[in-house]
Simulated assay, not measured.
Amino acid sequence: MTRLAAMFAMFLSLTAPHAWAEGTDMTEAVIIDGLTANLAEFKWTHRPLIVFADSPYDPAFVRQMELIEDDLPALVERDVVVLTDTDPSARSALRSALHPRGFGFVLVGKDGGIKLRKPSPWTVREISRTIDKMPMRQQEIRESR
């Protein structure tokens, strides 16, 4: 996927917060507004990466999203869907379930379990390494050979 296509996919996903519910092809819509997301929708199909902040202008949030946008194809390859939540006053289901404090991200496995929780931005390479060590991902790699 070219950088332009990735940016277009991100734009579409941000302007359509209900993209998942409407059956959007998740190989294109990687970044979704998490205010209305339900983690159960992704169980056994995707690895949600939930990025929280108290404002979309939080420098750590901005940096994390830049890092994600720099390598969207690596996330697509690992069945990652990025959910963003930058409005604490909305009291989303994600916030109720994961209890974030300020900026942070949470990686949830396909089994629905929390695999990683970090209070500072990480590169896609660092996130990918964590995913690639998971038993389910190891199985996916073996099956793809």
Rank of each mutant, 00 (worst) to 15 (best):
L67T: 10
K43P: 08
P48L: 07
I114N: 14
V81G: 01
Q139K: 14
E69Y: 00
F105S: 08
R117G: 08
K118M: 14
Y57C: 10
A21H: 10
D111I: 14
V108D: 02
S120H: 11
M10Y: 13
G104L: 10
A6S: 15
E140P: 05
F61E: 11
T84K: 09
P17T: 03
M10S: 15
P56V: 09
R142V: 13
L72S: 01
K43H: 10
S92R: 11
H46G: 01
I31H: 00
P73E: 02
W20S: 03
S13P: 03
G34Q: 01
T84W: 08
D25V: 01
V106A: 11
R125H: 09
A93F: 06
Q139D: 09
K43I: 13
A74K: 00
P73V: 02
L98N: 05
P17W: 00
P59S: 11
A9G: 15
W44T: 04
T36H: 15
A74Y: 00
M26Q: 13
L75I: 00
L75C: 00
D25S: 01
D87Y: 06
D70S: 15
E22I: 04
E140Q: 11
W20P: 00
S92P: 04
D71M: 00
E143H: 06
V82L: 09
N38F: 01
G34L: 03
R91T: 11
Y57L: 15
I68Q: 05
S55T: 10
A19W: 02
E22R: 12
D25W: 01
D85R: 04
E41M: 10
E126G: 09
A6Y: 02
M10F: 10
T2E: 10
L39D: 01
D58F: 03
A90F: 14
R142M: 13
A29L: 08
D87S: 14
E22K: 10
T27Y: 02
L107I: 01
I68S: 05
S89Y: 05
S13M: 03
G109E: 07
Q139L: 15
A21M: 12
